[in-house]
């Protein structure tokens, strides 16, 4: 199994609540070091809530979350980020009044052992578009450029693991293809990636393994190849 190198991220028995509503039920998953794992599911299945719970953005989330052997279950989100977890939200949430360089500055953290080290120059190499608009306010960028900036911004924290929430959502097909190449490149740099997706075609090209979530519960786990072979699971939960 891929767990051989040890696990970068392990979630066990995660239950999340919004007010009285129970959103996640005993979600458990793990991502091995250097792996790309997809969390697949429909809208409202619980993907975003799972990722938000991991990064500490859900006030009422119970269960253990372990990052590189460190218990992050009850840590505030900034501590979790400082422990080396990057988060790219679905809504992008770039700082529209800040320039590209200033956006990157917000994400800056000291380099850490065992994770690729990023500088703005290295990131501009990865995202050449951004290099041409260093002083442009985030609000004046297109959706695709904003998505690139969100990723670049969280890489500035030199994470060893990164969570990407539906990176292909709302992007033109060509940009989606470009996004796929970027993620592959990040993997080759040694980064661990947990990716939430509805777009099975996109996830298939990148991921080693997949979990399928539905109604707040994990319904399936296996390698990407196994999932692609399992017509029944795909029909039941993914409706492609």
């Amino acid at each position: 199994m891929t767990q051989r190198n040890g696990s970068a991220l392990t979630v066990q028995g995660l239950n999340a609540f919004y007010g009285r509503a129970h959103i996640l039920f005993d979600v458990s998953l793990s991502v091995g070091k250097g792996e790309v794992v997809a969390l697949l599911g429909r809208n409202g299945a619980g993907k975003s809530t799972t990722l938000k719970s991991i990064v500490g953005l859900v006030a009422d989330a119970r269960g253990t979350r372990d990052l590189n052997g460190q218990d992050i279950s009850s840590q505030p989100s900034y501590r979790i980020a400082q422990a080396g977890l990057g988060y790219v939200p679905e809504e992008r949430r770039i700082f529209t009044n800040l320039t590209v360089m200033e956006n990157l500055e917000v994400g800056r953290q000291p380099p850490r052992a065992g994770a690729p080290e990023w500088t703005p120059e290295r990131l501009f190499e990865l995202f050449p578009n951004l290099a041409e608009m260093r002083d442009r306010p985030g609000g004046r960028m297109s959706g695709g450029e904003q998505q690139m900036l969100t990723i670049a911004r969280s890489l500035m924290g030199n994470p060893h693991t990164i969570l990407l929430d539906e990176p292909s959502e709302g992007l033109a097909p060509v940009i989606v293809e470009q996004m796929a190449r970027t993620i592959t490149r990040l993997k080759s740099e040694g980064l661990t990636v947990l990716l939430s997706e509805q777009n099975l075609f996109f996830a298939r090209a990148l991921s080693d393994r997949a979990y399928v979530i539905e109604g707040g519960r994990i319904r399936y786990q296996g390698t990407m190849a196994e999932l692609m072979a399992d017509e029944a699971v795909r029909q039941a939960y993914l409706t492609v």
Partner: peptide, 12 residues
Amino acid sequence: QRIYLGGSGVEA
């Protein structure tokens, strides 16, 4: 195709 659809768009 070049600026928007790409391979996957054409497929869809």
